[in-house]
Nucleic acid binder design. Structure first.
Lengths: 355, 355
DNA sequence: TTGTAAGCGTTATCAC
DNA sequence: GTGATAACGCTTACAA
């Protein structure tokens, strides 16, 4: 029987997968083994390095990152909070984020808030407890009195620990952010429509409770004014961001003005509008053109393939990753602004010069 | 200056957030503090418990789960590997999985393999390094010679450490699994069609490289035989699981047999088929009915809202979570079989009794 | 270039 | 019911 000094008992009972076993097999100290396995800058002779490497290899050693995290105070882990991971919008963002951080050997925790303030706060706490190096908020902050307060406190705590916070949308928290330019998106789309000869463009707006509705509407109004197109409240109808709302907006609009094109603040409403138009006997785009914003997956498969503006969701995620990495590298990252890109399909037609 | 014994130096330099500080503030030992914070079964007097609790509260103490994991050898984390998180199919599964394990205070790592064997293996290694308690494979195993071997080895290692592996699809690895019954899905859909009077049903199959193609085709064949409907190779055309393939299959089918309904092995092909039918001047469903399988998001928004079978993706995730939890609770979980459910929309019509 | 040993923040095993 | 104290697996001064 081997004697066991308390200082260095090598436990034969379970699979030998710790640094100690590697060191032992290589005939070196744990410190040395650690230096080669962790890629430390501390010098190690080539010969020893090889011994350690081959020992690790033969034991198929995988370093325990939790142990490493404990001493380095860096878990190489990032947490992201999304409203709904089954929504391709967030799915794309998460994909971009994951791709970006994985390249630097970070792992991603995903949390689904379901837009529930309490749940979201709990996730922040959980991320904190798991010592994530950064938390990414993929969606806007929620509107709840207590939520704002508590979140601020948690954020402060988290940052005190050296954690980074990155925002991918409007948010009450401070921090580096990547923003999609919604104002410009709507304005650019108006510009596109105007370029195709449209001078009377109706607008189906989103619900006023949402910040994004205002920004996109403002973009529409600004462009319409700048280009001297038909303007005024009669050109605008609320569509609640829903398919039905988009459909319902059409009769209202058509009652008031004789538009040649309709821009909807999101694709779902655009599709609803198209359906409604079709069922009313209008041809799309020959009688009336329809354009959307977002480029959701079904935009392509609707009754008429929709011309719309793609929100660069994957790129938002990638940009978020780069902000995370910069922040963790002790840089002070600058906000990133992303523009959309018009996807031309079949729902918009050119019309001749105005009579 | 305070003296610092090596045994208990309380570092004033950084935020006091460890158990030691809580214990100190509460006037108890770390051991006791640990017992109340970790919800240990070890007895603690009500009085001390309150002291510790309020100390923790006032320091807004959050236990370091990495440290806990190091000693308990349980990280309370689960890793899931998906092909593509931006695909709502996986998004839904991940959502269900996350909901399920979060209820038991587990955190979820998400990895995107992009169907790349090398990437997938690296993720398994990374999960192992991060000491996840379980790995969930959301998709089928890839077909690559080295991949299978290496994955087996990694799995063995991982299990040696006490890790659990759960499969949500056909997989070369052993382990508890949740399976969607693809055979039955196709068969049930044939049954539905037959119930609406259809006796000559064409079938657009998936690519033969995929296991699921065979299973669904077998389901179709079995049902058609059992119900005494029109059968034989002339009723079947390959559609490659794509929109275009689905469209291309239509003329082939129609050339050979006079079908009253077409079942596609997935929704994308069903939509392609519908488009093709429409463009050839057939009315759907009045001239020919079309049904799909999967119920992807666009099924509802296609040229004709598609009658199809919903694959219970969220439920698959939930079931996976329950398998994980059981396995981690040292149960031996039984496989879970899930059936789909027909979603009736507008692409299938009844026809009178056969002439 | 190598080794010794002191932690990182917990939990768990013993004593008391 | 409470408290020392030895781990857990790793990194990192500090020595040699």
């Amino acid at each position: 029987m081997l004697s066991k000094e308390p200082g260095s008992p090598l436990d034969e009972s379970k699979p030998p997968h710790s640094l100690r076993h590697v060191a032992q097999l290589a005939g070196v100290s744990v410190a040395t083994a650690s230096r080669v396995m962790s890629g430390s800058s501390h010098p190690v002779s080539e010969r020893t390095r090889q011994q350690v490497l081959s020992a690790a290899e033969s034991l198929s050693f995988v370093p325990n990152r939790l142990a490493r995290a404990l001493v380095t105070a860096r878990s190489h882990t990032v947490g992201v909070i999304v409203h709904d991971i089954s929504d391709p919008y967030f799915g794309d963002i998460v994909k971009g984020l994951e791709d970006g951080i994985h390249a630097e050997d970070y792992q991603l925790f995903v949390a689904n808030s379901d837009r529930d303030p309490e749940k979201e706060l709990n996730y922040v706490r959980a991320f904190d407890a798991n010592q994530v190096d950064a938390i990414v908020f993929a969606a806007s902050s929620l509107t709840d009195p207590d939520y704002a307060d508590t979140l601020q406190k948690l954020a402060t705590r988290f940052r005190g620990r050296g954690g980074a916070i990155v925002l991918l949308s409007d948010h009450l928290l401070e921090g580096p952010r990547v923003l999609f330019d919604n104002h410009r998106a709507a304005a650019d789309m108006v510009g596109y429509l105007a370029g195709r000869g449209h001078r009377r463009i109706g607008y189906i707006s989103g619900p006023p409770e949402l910040e994004v509705s205002h920004v996109r509407l403002a973009g529409f109004n600004a462009a319409v004014a700048e280009l001297g197109l038909g303007a005024g409240p009669e050109y605008i109808a609320d569509g609640k961001f829903t398919l039905e709302g988009g459909g319902a907006a059409i009769p209202k609009l058509l009652d008031r003005v004789d538009v040649t094109a309709v821009l909807a603040a999101n694709d779902l409403m655009a599709i609803g509008a198209t359906r409604q138009l079709l069922s009313m006997g209008f041809a799309v785009p020959d009688d009336i053109s329809v354009a959307g914003l977002d480029d959701i997956p079904i935009a392509e498969y609707g009754p008429v393939p929709l011309t719309t503006m793609r929100v660069p969701t994957y790129e938002i995620g990638r940009a978020g990753a780069s902000l995370v990495l910069q922040a963790l590298g002790d840089d002070v990252p600058a906000d990133i602004r992303l523009a959309g890109e018009i996807v031309v399909r079949e729902s918009v037609s050119s019309i001749g010069p105005p009579a």
